[in-house]
């Protein structure tokens, strides 16, 4: 037997042994408890849909996909929190393995060393979502300065949107936006904000790009009537991060991102949240929001009460 053949035989034996070892690898047991900031996810879906998607579909999906990674997730469930501090307390008590919340809220409530990389939703084509400040085209609004005395609509329970608008007004007017606008109303759904502006119920508003694109697709006339004045480049409205110390974060992060590309059940869940795709989300991506919020606070400090 020459040297080449011997090498081939050795490789074959090693492959068989590795396969046997992997096949006999014991299942690691664990859990997956997700904490959701309720106000940030109820815009796109009803509570009943969220409950079904998280407690049944996600459970099935995790149980099915984790098997492939030799994980045995004994418990998987979701908990909705009305406030971020409640969620933070639950995390500190060790009740959560993952949190899903707006990045600004995460920056404000959590410390970096409490979390580690997770994933976030993306638009189709792995495009980032943006926060738009839109105005009616027939109101002669070409800049922030023209917004004075106008009617504004903001998303409900979305502090990032409010900070975004306030920052712009602070920069322009050195005054809080509420003081410069005739009226400020809040709507739960971004689509409704856009419709109200279209039907001249308001002059300006803040919506996410996803909602804007969907509505324009339904009625292209909206793009001609309602124009984008300013945009804040953000990846998504909500970020998901594993709790520091969660043992299966790497496997589950990988599993979620791959599973949501081919699993029917995963597609159903994404459809409920109107999120076409998922992508990896580093903990460092919070830096942008942290700085943005810090800038805002500085601007706010500079404004005389």
């Amino acid at each position: 037997m020459n040297g080449f053949k011997r090498l081939l035989l050795t490789c074959l034996i090693q492959c068989v042994l590795i396969s046997l070892c992997l096949a006999n690898e014991p299942l690691r047991q664990g859990r997956m408890v997700m904490g959701f900031y309720a106000h940030s996810i109820t815009e796109n879906a009803s509570l009943s849909d969220i409950e079904v998607s998280l407690n049944f579909w996600a459970k099935d999906l995790i149980a099915e996909e984790s098997q492939k990674m030799h994980l045995n997730i004994l418990e998987s469930r979701a908990i909705l929190f009305d406030t971020m501090p409640e969620m933070h307390q639950a995390l500190l008590r060790g009740e959560l393995d993952m949190i899903i919340a707006p990045p600004l809220e995460i920056v404000r409530e959590f410390k970096r060393d409490e979390l580690k990389d997770g994933f976030t939703g993306m638009l189709a084509g792995n495009q980032p979502d943006n926060l738009y400040l839109v105005v009616r085209g027939d109101k002669n609004i070409s800049g922030i300065k023209d917004l004075a005395g106008k009617r504004m609509l903001l998303p409900e329970d979305d502090e990032l949107a409010e900070v975004f608008v306030d920052s712009l007004f602070l920069k322009q007017f050195r005054a809080n936006y509420k003081t410069k606008l005739t009226s400020v109303q809040k709507q739960k759904k971004g689509s409704r904000i856009l419709l109200d502006i279209y039907f001249n119920q308001a002059d300006a508003g803040v919506i996410y790009r996803n909602a804007y694109d969907v509505m324009v697709e339904l009625n292209p006339d909206i793009a001609r009537t309602v124009l984008v004045l300013e945009k804040l480049p953000i990846k998504n409205k909500n970020f998901s991060y594993f709790v520091k110390g969660y043992p299966f974060s790497v496997e589950l992060s990988k599993m979620v991102i791959t599973a949501f590309k081919h699993s029917v059940r995963a597609k159903q869940i994404l459809d409920v949240f109107r999120t076409p795709e998922l992508d990896h989300c580093s903990i460092n991506e919070l830096d942008f929001y942290e700085e943005f919020y810090a800038d805002y606070l500085r601007l706010k400090k500079g404004v005389k009460p």
Binding site: R192, L195, Y198, Q201
Partner: peptide
């Protein structure tokens, strides 16, 4: 005449 609601609802 809240047309936004009408559209949203019918969609």
């Amino acid at each position: 005449r809240d047309y936004g609601f009408i559209v949203e609802h019918n969609v």
